[in-house]
Simulated assay, not measured.
Amino acid sequence: MRGAALLFALALALGPAASTAQTDPTQSARAAMDELQGASAALEAAEGARDRVAALTQTVQAYEKGLAALREGLRQATIRESAIHGVFSAESERLAQLLGVLQSIEAAPESHLLLHPSGPLGTVRSGMILSDVTPALSQEAAQLRRALQEVAMLRALQETAVSTLEEGLQGVQTARTELSKAVANRTDLPRRFVADQAAMENLINSSDTLESFASGLMSTTVEETSVSIAQPDFSEAQGALEMPVLGRVIRRFEEADAAGVRRPGWVVATRPLTLVTTPWPATIRYLGPLLDYGEVAILEPGEGYLLVLSGLGQVFGEVGEVLPRGAPVGLMGGALMSEDQAFLMSSAQGGGAQATESLYIELRRNGTPLDPSTWFVGPEN
C-alpha cells in the first residue's frame, strides 16, 4: 500500500510533464528565451531601419512578451519542483527503504539471491515472491529516477533563465530609451490640427471629471491644417481591436471596485514601464496630466469616438498628430531600478515582478461610454 501511494504521488507530480510531452514548463521557458534572443537581434537591426519608431516599438513589444513568457515558465518550473520535493518529503522514509533495497540487490551476488536458508522449497517460494515484487520495485525505481532527473533539469533551466532574464531586462531598457529618442526626433507624422493652448487650459481648469473633460474636448474648436488625411472607418474595428498594453483586465465595465466605485471602462494591471500603443489609426486630442488620472492620452480613432488611456508615466507625441495603428503612445509609470531588482530577485524563486501599474481604458461615442469588451479581443483575464 505504501509503495502504491508513493507511485501515485510521484505520478501526480510528474503527470503534467508527461501530458505535455515532457516540455512544460521547460519548453515554454526555452521558447521564451529564444524570443528574447530574437528581440536582441531585432534591437540591433532597428539601428538601420528606415522607420526606427516602428522597428523599436516592435522590439520593445517582443522583449515584453518574451519576458512575460519567461516569468510564467519560471513560475511553473518552481511549482513543478515544489510538487516533486513535496512528495519526497512526505515519503522520505519510504524512499530511504526503496533506495536501501535497490542498493542491496545491486551489491549482492546473483547466486546468493537465488538461495534460501530453508532449502529448495524456500528458494522456490522466495523466487515466486521476488518475481511478483520486482516489477513494482522496478516501476518505483523508474519513477524515482525520472523525478530526480526532472528536478535536475528544472534547476539547470532556472539557472540559465535568470541570466537570460537579466540580459532581457537590459535589452528592453535600451530599446525603451532608444524608442523615446526616436519618437522625440520624429517629424514624419501628418498633423490634422494645431491645438489652442489657451482653450485647452481653460477646459482643464473647468473640468472636474473625466466625463466633463471628454465632452468639452469634443466640442472644442481647433485650427485645422491643410493636410487631408483619409482614415479607415473605426466602426469596422468593433470586436477586432488589439489591447493597447500587455496586461490583465482586473476590473471591467461598470464593475464596482473595493470602495464601491463603478467606472465606465476597464482597469488593466500591467508591469512598470510597459509600452502603450494605439490599437487603431487615431488623432491625438490630448496628452498630459489630468485631474487625478496621472498622464492621460486621449485619441480620436474615428469621428465622434474618443479613446481614453490614463495612468501612464510618460506620453509620446503632440496634440493634432495622426498616429498609425500600433504606434507608441507612451510608457507606464514605475521605477526602473526597483522593477529590475524585484524582477530578478523573484525570478530566481520562480516568480516575477508584480503588475503594480494600472492603465484605465475608456471608449466613448458622442459622449456615451461603450463597453470595451465589445471592441477589444483577447485580453488576459
Rank of each mutant, 00 (worst) to 15 (best):
17 A>Q: 09
27 Q>P: 02
65 K>M: 14
192 R>E: 05
32 A>C: 13
250 I>A: 09
25 P>C: 07
200 M>Y: 04
155 R>P: 09
224 E>F: 08
232 P>K: 09
321 E>D: 05
135 P>W: 03
37 Q>T: 15
112 H>M: 13
329 V>K: 06
247 G>A: 00
346 S>A: 14
31 A>C: 03
279 P>Q: 04
6 L>V: 11
81 E>V: 05
326 G>W: 00
262 R>M: 09
229 I>C: 00
381 N>R: 15
248 R>Y: 12
97 Q>K: 13
115 L>T: 12
212 S>E: 08
151 V>Q: 01
31 A>N: 13
374 T>H: 00
283 T>L: 00
344 L>G: 04
117 P>N: 02
282 A>I: 05
208 D>R: 15
221 T>N: 15
206 S>D: 12
145 R>F: 07
43 L>P: 06
340 D>E: 15
51 D>E: 04
142 A>C: 01
292 D>F: 00
43 L>V: 00
8 F>P: 03
92 S>F: 13
44 E>A: 10
61 Q>R: 11
56 L>Y: 07
314 Q>P: 10
116 H>W: 12
274 T>F: 15
253 F>M: 05
25 P>T: 06
319 V>K: 13
261 V>W: 08
97 Q>I: 03
29 A>Q: 04
310 S>V: 11
63 Y>I: 12
8 F>S: 15
190 P>W: 07
360 Y>D: 10
284 I>C: 08
362 E>P: 10
128 M>N: 08
29 A>T: 00
367 G>W: 10
161 A>I: 04
279 P>G: 09
98 L>Q: 00
328 P>E: 09
129 I>R: 10
25 P>R: 03
89 S>A: 15
258 A>W: 03
121 L>D: 05
250 I>F: 11
277 T>Y: 11
210 L>G: 00
243 M>W: 04
153 M>S: 15
227 V>C: 09
310 S>K: 06
222 V>D: 11
336 L>W: 14
239 G>V: 10
146 R>K: 14
341 Q>K: 05
237 A>F: 09
239 G>N: 00
135 P>G: 07
362 E>I: 07
171 G>A: 08
322 V>A: 02
15 G>L: 03
191 R>V: 03
170 Q>W: 08
283 T>W: 05
334 G>E: 08
266 W>M: 03
262 R>Y: 06
39 A>S: 06
344 L>P: 09
294 G>Y: 07
335 A>W: 06
101 V>S: 09
224 E>I: 06
365 R>M: 02
120 P>G: 02
145 R>G: 04
93 E>H: 06
200 M>A: 13
111 S>I: 13
65 K>I: 04
321 E>R: 12
202 N>T: 10
53 V>T: 11
355 A>C: 07
143 Q>T: 11
293 Y>S: 09
253 F>Q: 09
52 R>E: 14
279 P>I: 01
278 T>P: 01
177 T>P: 10
63 Y>N: 11
165 L>Q: 13
192 R>M: 07
43 L>R: 01
336 L>V: 10
122 G>N: 01
332 M>K: 11
12 L>K: 10
184 A>P: 12
149 Q>M: 05
325 R>H: 12
255 E>K: 02
155 R>Y: 06
176 R>K: 03
136 A>Q: 05
370 L>P: 03
138 S>C: 08
157 L>W: 05
253 F>G: 07
200 M>R: 10
132 D>T: 13
143 Q>L: 14
38 G>E: 14
91 E>H: 15
33 M>K: 08
82 S>W: 06
276 V>K: 05
341 Q>V: 13
299 L>S: 01
